[in-house]
Design a protein around this nucleic acid. Structure first.
Lengths: 237, 237
DNA sequence: CCATCTTTTTGATCTTGATCAAGGTCGACC
DNA sequence: GGTCGACCTTGATCAAGATCAAAAAGATGG
């Protein structure tokens, strides 16, 4: 197991001795497809590292509607942030999209050990910071961009470098929820982009025929993020 | 200034010596109403503690639309999370809603000093964790709840304990943007709740006439989320 | 107190995306 | 190979909210 642990970013700065200690309280576990790991509201006693397979983190509303917040894949950790709250409870549900292997860490133990590794604290804070940024971006997407724009963004983000085709290796319904779109609407958007000659849908494989066009759609009311903004120069400090 | 610093949660665990050091690289500054503190995309060299007045953090999209992400008031810090990223840039714009006094900290220096205070690291991680949770909640609100529901939620969250009236001490337009609603729509929602006898609008003061009713609207497709943790320590009941 | 500017409200209309209800498609399994 | 069930697509309709334009209500300053 130590090998698996070495691979995780969050643990990369620990000494052998520390890793050893972490490992003592870590458990390997396995989920079948569809199995729930934890429920929104459960006391957060563990955090996790995914070894193989993917999970989805989602929010449930009272009326049963669900919204996929994040897809977690191999090498990624999740729910670490809760380690630093007193009576933490998971703010989302987690369930396996496919057979999953993961390692579960005891938050108490880990936090204990953390006190001896400021370096690891910094790693964690970096991770949290990025995640924060990601969520802000997401909020902007939801507030300021159309469904098609979000889908276009998604496609672009999944496009392998130098390639013009993506394998959408998730059920459409999951992608839809991730993008806060209804499956029907997602279907129609695909079709529309298709008839406009911007993409070609071949099963779950999507070919981008007109990259410029797709980028344009993605940018409809979208941030071209890298500081393309007019700075009005009056920045104190 | 030291006094002001002592008040900030994030600095509460520092030794006198550390606080002294922090202070040496801290600058007090003042903004007039409407003045921009930093722009989305600017290199994040400082983080801030608000002494008085409020700011709004908002995202700008290319077409100029803006979305208020957060309102920051006295005693709160912001942009600390960026301290832990290599080439961090502010992910939002910050501007003063009214005359503001704040203290600016040098992120480099602070991070340096942080390495000697794991305790403070833990505080920060706790803060980031809560903020993360807040954003997840927000995403759920946007994806799963109606505009009226979000407004009802907002009212409830601003209701002082044991009281049934709120002073909306922000321009309606700002509140609207915060809730991702157009001002016109917000206006209509107020009116509708008014005619339904659920609230009474008297200028910027809103009286809640039917608390149950308001809660019901807030919960339409809403998270049961019993532990609505508001950083502001105002636990109803 | 008036002139002007900004913010808020109101009214009419339009658009996006949701909803509801069938059909299709595909893969798993007998 | 046929049946079942899950998923995806399509069509018709609906509703929430956006947009546009204009009037009303506050502020602000002379």
């Amino acid at each position: 197991m130590i090998d698996a642990l070495r691979g995780a970013l969050l643990l990369s700065r620990l000494s052998d001795e520390q890793l050893e200690r972490v490992q003592r309280h870590a458990t390997r576990l396995r989920l079948q497809e569809g199995q729930l790991l934890f429920n929104q509201g459960d006391p957060a006693l563990h955090f996790y590292l995914v070894l193989s397979g993917r999970l989805r983190l989602f929010r449930l509303s009272v009326d049963g509607a669900e919204k996929v917040i994040e897809i977690i894949g191999p090498g990624e950790t999740f729910a670490e942030a809760l380690m630093f709250l007193a009576q933490a409870r998971y703010p989302v549900c987690a369930s396996a999209l496919e057979p999953v292997e993961l390692i579960s860490f005891d938050t108490r133990d880990f936090a204990q050990m953390l006190q001896e590794s400021v370096e690891t604290c910094f790693l964690i804070m970096g991770v949290l910071s990025q995640r924060l940024h990601g969520l802000v971006q997401e909020i902007e997407n939801l507030s300021l961009h159309s469904a098609s724009s979000r889908f276009a963004c998604y496609l672009l983000s999944r496009l392998p470098p130098y390639k013009l085709a993506v394998e959408l290796d998730l059920r459409k319904g999951i992608i839809a929820s991730r993008l806060s779109i209804k499956p029907e609407t997602l279907s129609r958007i695909e079709k529309e982009l298709s008839t406009r000659g911007i993409i070609a849908v071949r099963g779950s494989r999507i070919h981008v025929l007109n990259l410029k066009g797709l980028e344009e759609i993605a940018a409809l009311g979208n941030p071209s993020d890298p500081g393309a903004l007019v700075s009005n120069g009056s920045t104190p400090n």
